[in-house]
Nucleic acid binder design. Structure first.
Length: 256
DNA sequence: ATGGCGAGACAATCTCGA
């Protein structure tokens, strides 16, 4: 069984002890992290290596930054979708298990209609082009990350209040659907159709205690990969206790 | 309607996230 996890840690250095405990507890084959918030030289490589994990890192000072931690060494295929992008937002690897793995941190978008919103939509277009350039729908490909989009209203604690707000707008959902329509399946929805299951809760307003959250951390798989997906769950316990990230890990298992 | 919390950069308060 292969375990693939996506987790926006909101600073790898602030979350180091939690990440190490998570590796020990869950023993994932691939831990895809977003928002490292550090350059490669500030990444806690020795500490992670001491746990027995390899690190494929794509860092950036203060913002963004992604990494894939793996039990086995992996080949890095790409950093970013567009080599001209200056933000470190994706890393793609070839796994030794017959599938490729994309880990992405989709731009936040700030607010509908802003320059950052346009950047987000353009970035998603580039993501689609990138996937189409390098894979076909019959390949085994897993695409995980913080998508910063709640796919539908079941993924939003108050869909009326959030209507046409950032993360829920029709423009974002259309852009996401356009990417997904290449042939991606939302693995969580293969196993659970309920509403009110979230992966992110605001630090403010006791949002976690009130379950005021969004499901924006997603694990997409092409049909052949999805056919091997046995479970997807969200590790809400990671959102409890001292100094949590505002995101919880999403954990999928595959019997590749 | 606003801001509320947390992190980084930097050195008192900013920006940014979602």
């Amino acid at each position: 069984m292969i375990k693939v996890v996506t987790w926006n840690v909101n600073s790898i250095n602030s979350r180091l002890e939690r990440v190490k405990a998570f590796l020990e507890r869950e023993s994932p084959d691939f831990l895809c992290l977003q928002e490292l918030k550090c350059s490669e030289d500030k990444y806690p490589l020795e500490s992670i290596t001491a746990t027995g994990y390899h690190s494929a890192i794509f860092g950036q000072k203060a913002y963004n930054g992604v990494a894939i931690l793996s039990k086995k060494p992996v080949e890095i295929l790409f950093r970013n979708f567009d080599p001209d992008d200056d933000a470190s937002r994706s890393i793609t690897i070839r796994t030794p298990f017959g599938f490729d793995l994309i880990n992405a941190y989709v731009p936040n978008g700030q607010a509908v209609g802003t320059e950052k919103y346009a950047y987000k939509l353009a970035w998603l277009k580039k993501a689609k082009k990138f996937v189409q350039q390098h894979w076909t729908p019959s390949d085994k490909l897993v695409f995980v990350g913080d998508f910063n989009i709640a796919p539908d209203d079941r993924d939003v604690y108050d869909p009326v209040a959030w209507k046409e707000h950032i993360h829920c707008s029709a423009g974002e959902r259309t852009a996401l659907n356009d990417l997904v329509s290449i042939g991606f399946i939302d693995s969580f929805r293969m196993h659970d159709q309920s509403s009110g299951v979230f992966s992110w809760w605001d630090y403010r307003e006791l949002s976690f205690a009130r379950n005021k959250g969004l499901r924006i951390d997603l694990i997409y798989a092409t049909p052949l990969a999805a056919a091997s997906c046995r479970s997807v769950r969200i590790d809400k316990d990671e959102r409890r206790g001292d100094k949590p990230s505002d995101h919880a890990p999403v954990i999928a298992t595959f019997d590749f």
